[in-house]
Design a binder for these strands. Structure first.
Lengths: 233, 233
DNA sequence: TTATACTTATGACAGATATCATAAACTGAT
DNA sequence: ATCAGTTTATGATATCTGTCATAAGTATAA
């Protein structure tokens, strides 16, 4: 595409962010964004954003997998959601607060695209169509998270586990066979139940031949049944 | 105020929406908004917005109290949150989807200010500062809801109940003595537990002299202890 | 008013989940 | 290779929560 040729720094395929910017900004403005934005790679376990720190950048996940979570001293983490490539990961509060409200941590080797927040705000304030599009995308992201949280909330333990396994299989890896990118403890923190019970439920799913497990590798062998459990369990 | 005199249709004290519009729109634009917007009163139990219907209006709660909830046939409702005057109540998905994703129902006699969505979108698209301010307010509302949902999620039954009682006392009625605007069943739908257990826990709070109950009237008699339970319970 | 449905309340019990204990497997650092 | 710490796994048990049953109180409409 000629557009990409014009912006050698913004050549990532599938970049929603680029779409967002391209659709509304001039060639010069694009040049500005593309020269300012920075990529950075993170190893699993590395914090991308730490809660309570000053909001300085807008983050976008290009590669890998991350968790959005609350860290509470003396208490288990709470995982808000798990975000995949092309998701906006700095969502809540970045416009309405001056500190990040939650922590973002890499689960897999990840590459994050970072744009100075003042620049993004500047564009939003002088380009209404851009701001409007940005608002739509941010609100869509938040909506999905809240919906997911409410869905998880109403399910029993096995339902929560099935829901999470299906999220990995259907939405993240798009494959019945996948490598779990989280520990059992993290699944528990996501579901809001105890680690032991997640392990137990995994074993029962295995015994009932809904899944096969070898270490971190999971294969869903009875998709239909697992979907039932995630809806009604 | 002279501003109010200029816009006789928009004279409500404490209107956040008016602030939002006044700050960014011209006198003519304000005239347009003020002549188009409509108030409507709703009786308790009346639906203000029904999920799955077309997004046509932007809603703002002027008086009363409402619940935002998901209705599922054959299953109990899920209450997302309870909104009080000056809250934006049409939040999730109104910009990113063409149907409302949840239902809004009055809990107390309520007055809602309604503005045609196309008009709001029109202003947002041609006035960047207005759109930016709107985005901030909407995202702040959603942030608070998600935070509240995550807080509720990690608490045990008594913690959830204490949290909800404190929300009524501290955030909504700003009084230790208040009239419960919801049934025990609705508290249960909000907390995500069974109605019987909410009733039982209320009785125990009464026996432990944390609250006094007479019908719908609740008085918090041991605030400190109730706050402890809502934090660590 | 009576009749009906709903709400509040409590007890009994079953089922779900957390907690504690133990141990094997795995991981990373030395 | 070894050690320490973490993760996975399973059992036993206590606690929490849901479900079912019953009944009294309350509101609403005919």
């Amino acid at each position: 595409m000629e557009a990409n040729a014009m912006h050698p720094e913004c050549r990532c395929v599938n970049c929603q962010l680029k779409e967002l910017f391209f659709a509304h900004l001039s060639a010069d403005e694009m040049m500005e964004i593309c020269s300012i934005r920075k990529d950075r790679a993170y190893a699993p376990g590395e914090h991308i954003v730490m809660q309570e720190t000053k909001v300085d950048n807008f983050f976008y996940l290009k590669e890998g997998l991350v968790k959005l979570h609350f860290i509470k001293s003396g208490r288990e983490d709470q995982i808000i959601t798990i975000a995949k490539p092309f998701d906006f990961i700095s969502i809540l509060s970045i416009f309405s607060s001056d500190t990040y409200k939650y922590t973002i941590t890499a689960l897999l080797p990840s590459v994050v695209c970072r744009i100075n927040m003042d620049i993004v705000k500047g564009f939003a304030l002088k380009n209404a169509a851009f701001g409007f599009d940005l608002m739509n995308r941010l609100s869509k992201s938040t909506d999905i998270i809240l919906k997911e949280t409410m869905d998880l909330k109403r399910l029993n333990l096995k339902g929560k586990l099935a829901f999470i396994l299906l999220k990995f299989s259907q939405h993240i890896f798009k494959n019945l066979l996948f490598e779990l990118p989280v520990t059992r403890k993290e699944i528990a923190e996501y579901a809001g139940v105890s680690t032991e019970n997640i392990i137990r439920a995994l074993s029962e799913f295995r015994k009932d031949r809904l899944i096969r497990i070898s270490g971190k590798e999971i294969e869903i062998t009875n998709l239909e049944r697992l979907e039932q459990i995630s809806r009604f369990g």
